[in-house]
Design a protein around this nucleic acid. Structure first.
Length: 576
DNA sequence: GCCGTTTTCGGCCCGACTGTTTTCAGTCG
């Protein structure tokens, strides 16, 4: 999406300025603008058209003009001109851990390097340590950094990082000197992708904990290690940063280590205005240095005049103002979820029987579960013929006659065909409680075509929600070209919900898009797209995304009671 | 380059670790 392009453009601009040794605050302004654009919860074209770009925090007159220029022409002259004046290799070089703008400048200017392979060759030939400010140790460090880039080029998906981190935490908990241990960083904020895992411990013996951490079986390589802070690469190839503090510092440290960076900056600026100083050790009076708070997160926020802010929304996107005004949203929680809407049985491409899925859903305390196998055209997933779907309906009805405490909703994940028609006729669809519309074909169609397919599906009165609205698969497939603002508007108009698909490689809609959808008046469905029993657990990821999107129970269909839900679905079917 | 319960100009968060240095710049988060 276009706001991601702008985010990258401004991040590049920040790199360029840093490389040229320009005013660091100007660099920061571009970085902050980039972060804001990446998570923009409104359509940037609309904001531009309505002259409201400067409403985005960190966007002033100048950056608004550059955004406008980019939207109008596809480029920003000033940035392009600056790019001409620096060696193109700097964008490559600063990707390498240990190489920042200063080192990149020296390497790029003295050796005419144009690729990471050349950088590696130069390091092996000991060309780097002939440069000023670089000795052999630094050269070796760059080689290690290069190896890291090669291994972990892609950020991990939230689901993968979460399970690896939880396993590691279980092992660390067994260490003798750890009093308390918690996940922090982007993982705690439930970002869609995770670069490294941050872990915070409280201990009276930090040095001992650091020794145990680097000496454990999980440690493949120590990247940096000091008395209170250590970074390692685990045997899974994941970078983990461990920070140790005293119990009375834990809350302040947890705030600091959870971030986001911009959220922290806002907190610290606020502290200064209040005559206080905030760091990872606590909140202090600026004048006397006397400690005001630090043991618990809530104490720190409270002393700053703020309600405690849930980690998922600590992104400098309005949460501080809301916390000061006591208007933070009551974010959706696991206990609000009454059911799952997107589940495949072994009749199509799932692994489990109807009964197994029903039992698992009941054990989770769900009130309802929609059974949604694939439709006939999706041969690769054994989509059900009309006859097979009719038989499936009978099985669901039969299962419901014996089930207690859980209702199975009959449903289907129905392909939206290349021409926009649904893959079952209405006489089938009308028999289903829940109809999912999905794009599984024609991914390369132009934006207008795909958007119209989805809009025409939404106009079908039997379609309850649109699954994975962008089709993106992390690390495998780019999103198809779709006009999301038009889809959001269509969703509102036709009373069709939109899915946050919690499957780890999908996470689609992403959080900023979901926030935009709800702002446009659409309802959201959280679903796991389960193909195997344990996939039901992915609801955790969907919840994380929903919380990042500031969603409250009223925004999400899963929070409705069964009768409320069916009434909501019926409402659309009854529309003129 | 942004921004204002102190400001339309003059500020702008804070600290750990590393390597190259003999007191600190660079990098990272």
């Amino acid at each position: 999406m276009i706001h991601h392009e702008l985010a990258e453009l401004f991040d590049n601009m920040a790199d360029l300025l840093e490389f040229r040794n320009e005013n660091p605050f100007r660099v920061r302004a571009y970085r902050r603008a980039s972060a804001q654009l990446a998570q923009l919860s409104e359509d940037v074209r609309t904001l531009d058209a309505e002259n409201r770009l400067t409403e985005i925090p960190g966007i002033g007159q100048d950056l608004a003009r550059k955004i406008h220029e980019y939207l109008a022409t596809g480029t920003v002259v000033e940035i392009e001109r600056l790019k001409q004046q620096v060696p193109p290799s700097i964008f490559l070089l600063i990707q390498v851990p240990g190489i920042g703008p200063k080192t990149a400048a020296i390497i790029a200017e003295r050796l005419k390097i144009t690729s990471l392979a050349q950088l590696e060759a130069a390091a092996h030939d000991h060309q780097l340590c002939k440069l000023p400010g670089i000795q052999e140790v630094k050269e070796q460090k760059i080689l290690k950094g290069l190896a890291l880039v090669r291994q972990g080029q892609h950020r991990r998906t939230l689901g993968a990082a979460l399970s690896l981190a939880q396993r590691l935490i279980e092992q660390l908990k067994a260490l003798p000197d750890i009093r308390r241990i918690e996940i922090a960083g982007s993982l705690r904020r439930m970002k869609e992708t995770i670069g490294d895992v941050d872990v915070l411990v409280s201990t009276a013996k930090p040095a001992a904990v650091m020794r145990q951490f680097t000496g454990g079986a999980w440690c493949r390589q120590v990247l940096a290690s000091g008395p209170t802070k250590t970074s390692i690469l685990t045997t899974d190839g994941m970078q983990v940063d461990l920070r140790a503090v005293k119990p009375e510092e834990f809350g302040a440290a947890w705030v600091y280590l959870t971030g986001s960076k911009d959220h922290n900056v806002r907190l610290r600026e606020r502290a200064i205005r209040l005559g206080l100083k905030l760091n990872e050790y606590g909140l202090f009076r600026a004048a006397s240095g006397r400690r005001v708070a630090g043991r618990e997160e809530a104490d720190v926020y409270k002393a700053l005049g703020l309600d405690w802010i849930p980690p998922e929304i600590r992104e400098d996107s309005g949460e501080l103002d809301a916390a000061a005004d006591h208007t933070l949203p009551r974010l959706i929680e696991a206990k609000d979820i009454r059911g799952d809407f997107h589940v495949h049985t072994n009749q199509s491409d799932g692994s489990n029987t109807l009964q197994e899925l029903a039992d698992a859903a009941r054990r989770r305390g769900y009130e309802y579960l929609a059974i949604t196998d694939h439709s006939q055209s999706l041969k690769i997933a054994h989509g059900l013929s009309e006859a097979a779907m009719t038989a499936q309906l009978a099985r669901i009805a039969e299962a419901n006659s014996t089930l207690r405490g859980l209702t199975l909703l009959s449903g289907a994940e129905v392909d939206i065909l290349k021409d926009g028609r649904m893959d079952y006729p209405d006489r089938i669809l009308k028999q289903l409680d829940v109809v999912i519309g999905s794009v599984h074909s024609g991914f390369n169609q132009p934006e207008a075509t795909i958007t119209n397919r989805i809009l025409s599906a939404m106009r079908n009165r039997y379609v309850t929600f649109i699954a994975h609205p962008t089709g993106r698969l992390h690390g495998q497939r780019e999103p198809y070209a779709v006009n999301l603002p038009a889809v959001f508007e269509g969703a509102r108009e036709t009373q069709t919900a939109l899915e946050i698909n919690a499957s780890p490689t999908r996470l689609d809609l992403e959080a900023s898009a979901a926030r935009q959808a709800v702002a446009a008046g659409a309802r959201i469905v959280l679903s796991t797209d389960t193909h195997r029993l344990d996939h039901l657990d992915h609801m955790t990821l969907g919840l994380g995304l929903a919380r990042r999107a500031w969603l409250e129970p009223k925004d999400v269909l899963n929070c409705l009671r069964r009768d409320e839900l069916l009434a909501w679905i019926q409402q659309k079917r009854n529309r003129p």
